[in-house]
């Protein structure tokens, strides 16, 4: 198992490195001119060239990529200019390792930017995850046990409604009614957990619910399908034939088998959500990673984009490894022999 984790981690790291290169190459292959964007309304070709140099975009992609990798390992200076560093050290920003780059637009280290935004996305993802897993599994199991009845159809139908409506609609709807009109929860805003855990939760609950309602629909249907599938397995018949009570068959035999495939889905969905939920964050005005990504894209801000790619990809790769390890924990056929 240990060897397996090591092997997966190594291949994951290699994948990350390749992804940064691919992102950079894609960025420069497109019709984007970040230097043009940055230098203002009236811009002479000479000025553009200077800006380009200042950004370091004049060098070949591979060199830029090399500098980027170096930044992650050793840290780097912006701009990379020995003369400027000597003459005007105040104009040079040092970025310590692991340095994901420096955003001219935000005039901040990308690492710092991500560090600021990440807790917001993380909180949102975790609360939403807990909500949708609990709800999805609970309603999915109920629907499966009441298969074909009005309860089953009701649960599946209602979850579909939430899935079908656009996220911003659900979000705005909840905002308007639950928070503003009925005042059941305070106005959604991000308050750090360390500051006040209760406010953290109440501030998050609406955006988290918006996300959860969207994801829940899928989980209700999947849970229902997996439980039904598991209930028709031969070993459930064996359990019945042994004389086990129905409740024990459900909790011990049916559920365990049904949840295994859910673990995969849940792990990957959570990892994806950690990278930010763009629409929900925008609706509720949360400055998470989603917002950062939008800002970076509209401003052609390469360092932030590459930084976000790395962070997001790391989560997905990590989630994959964790899911596989969990699989081995759950399923002895993977673990032993």
């Amino acid at each position: 198992m240990f060897a397996y984790i090591v092997r997966r981690t190594i291949s994951g790291l290699v994948l990350l490195v390749v992804m940064t290169l691919v992102t950079m190459m894609l960025f420069f292959s497109g019709p984007l001119h970040p230097e043009r964007h940055a230098c203002g309304k009236i811009c002479s070709p000479a000025q553009i060239a200077v800006t380009k140099k200042a950004f370091g975009y004049d060098k070949p992609v591979l060199v830029q990529w090399g500098q980027f990798m170096q930044g992650i390992v050793k840290g780097r200076n912006f701009p990379e200019d020995k003369k400027l560093e000597k003459d005007h050290p105040e104009l040079v920003v040092h970025c310590t390792a692991p340095c994901l780059g420096y955003s001219k637009y935000f005039t901040q280290n990308v690492t710092t930017l991500i560090k600021t935004s990440f807790p917001i996305s993380l909180s949102l993802a975790i609360v939403a995850f807990i909500l949708w897993i609990t709800g999805g599994v609970l309603f999915g199991v109920i629907a499966a046990l009441r298969k074909g009845t009005i309860i089953d159809r009701g649960i599946v139908g209602i979850s579909l409604i939430f899935y079908a409506f656009p996220t911003f609609f659900i979000g705005l709807f909840l905002y308007k009614f639950v928070s503003i009109k009925w005042q059941l929860v305070p106005t959604p805003e991000y308050i750090p957990f360390s500051q006040n855990p209760w406010s953290w939760l109440t501030g998050l609950i609406l955006p988290a619910l918006t996300l959860a309602l969207f994801f829940m629909a899928g989980y209700v249907r999947m849970t229902r399908a997996f439980v039904l599938e598991s209930m028709s397995e031969d070993y459930i018949r064996t359990a019945k034939a042994k004389g086990l009570p129905a409740r024990r068959i459900l909790t011990k035999h049916t559920m365990r088998a049904a949840f295994t495939p859910l673990v995969t889905m849940a792990g990957l969905d959570l990892a994806g959500l950690l990278g930010g939920a763009i629409i929900t964050e925008t609706v509720f005005n949360f400055n998470g990673l989603g917002g950062l990504a939008v800002a970076a894209a509209t401003n052609n801000d390469l360092p932030i984009l590459v930084g976000l790619v790395i962070v997001l990809a790391s989560f997905v790769i990590l989630a994959n490894i964790i899911v596989d390890v969990l699989y081995a924990v759950i399923d002895p056929r993977v673990r032993v022999g």
Binding site: D234, Y235, T238, K242, G243, R256, A257, R333
Partner: peptide
């Protein structure tokens, strides 16, 4: 207790976990 049963395919008749 009083009636027991064994099945055709013993692999699928036992819980894999």
């Amino acid at each position: 207790q009083d009636v027991a049963m064994i099945f055709q395919d013993p692999l699928s008749a036992m819980h894999p976990y």
